[in-house]
């Protein structure tokens, strides 16, 4: 009885120390990454190549998802709003939901699944096949040549993708609300414009997506860099990237929302 209690306590201890170990590792990794950023920023073509693989290749899924999310929001929103006789507010509801929350958050989740998991697998495989070691032996720092460009590409791509998601979302809501349901076109846009603030809503939304891009980018390169050099290790690392990125995005979103929008309307 006592033995099992001790076991439980030490298992609990192990659970936390191993996680804190990993956090420490991540912090040291982030520090090294930060140092290598200056070199990577001097070679932007390397980053743009990764923007192609991460950002451009995610464009279609983000745009289509945005359109559908906007349409669903419009159908659901209209259902509730017309009970209170304020169906013209549909544009406001949809636009604020998209610009403040769904745009940055859903884009980051899609990005984690579409692009970051691939980055983790790629870096993990490069490590397993000694490509990073070979680079290091050729006196080329893999941190600034391989890791940093992929990290920067996530930060760079995310705000554009979030803006595209929100835009197609608003267009989707407009198609449902104005074209299919028949809400007045003028009221739809004017209510939206009267209630969406560029600085508070749009800029904060983009700021969120930059923070998410940083988090998702860091997690994906970290998990790839420290993936065990086996098939199973890379599979585990890829899963971890998606799970940890998604949870981090949602947690960060809560913190940022409280900081940005508390005390407003």
């Amino acid at each position: 009885m006592r033995a099992s209690f001790v076991q439980l306590i030490s298992a609990l201890g192990h659970f936390f120390t191993s996680r804190i170990d990993r956090l420490g590792l991540a912090a040291r990794f982030a520090g090294a990454l930060l140092v290598s950023l200056s070199i990577a920023l001097g070679r932007l073509p390397l980053m743009f190549r990764e923007v192609y693989f991460s950002g451009v290749r995610s464009l279609s899924i983000v745009a289509v998802s945005g359109l559908f999310v906007g349409m669903v929001l419009a159908v659901q929103g209209y259902e509730v709003l017309q009970r209170y006789g304020s169906a013209e507010s549909l544009g406001v509801i949809v636009a604020l939901s998209l610009v403040r929350e769904l745009g940055p958050v859903v884009t980051a989740l899609l990005f984690a699944g579409r692009a970051s998991s691939a980055v983790t697998a790629e870096i993990g495989l490069m490590r397993a096949t000694e490509q990073l070691a070979a680079m290091d032996m050729m006196a080329v720092d893999p941190m600034s040549r391989v890791v940093a460009p992929r990290f920067l590409a996530a930060i760079f791509s995310m705000p554009f993708l979030a803006a595209i998601f929100s835009t197609t979302g608003v267009i989707g809501a407009w198609i449902i609300g104005v074209k299919l349901i028949g809400i007045d076109d003028g009221a739809f846009w004017s209510q939206m414009q009267a209630n969406v603030d560029v600085r508070i809503d749009v800029l904060n939304g983009l700021l969120k997506s930059i923070v998410f891009g940083t988090a998702v980018g860091l997690i994906s390169v970290f998990e790839g860099y420290f993936a065990a050099p086996t098939a199973e290790g890379i599979a585990t690392a890829t899963t971890r990237t998606v799970v940890i990125s998604s949870l981090s995005v949602l947690l960060l979103d809560l913190l940022l929302t409280v900081m940005m929008f508390r005390g407003l309307s």
Binding site: M126, T129, M138, A139
Partner: peptide, 23 residues
């Protein structure tokens, strides 16, 4: 230091077990 080590490594070549070509 890292920079000195990289300076030395420009004069060292290494062939890895499976080649380690950039895929």
């Amino acid at each position: 230091r890292q920079s000195e080590l990289y300076g030395l490594r420009r004069k060292i070549g290494m062939l890895f077990q499976f080649g380690a070509l950039f895929t």
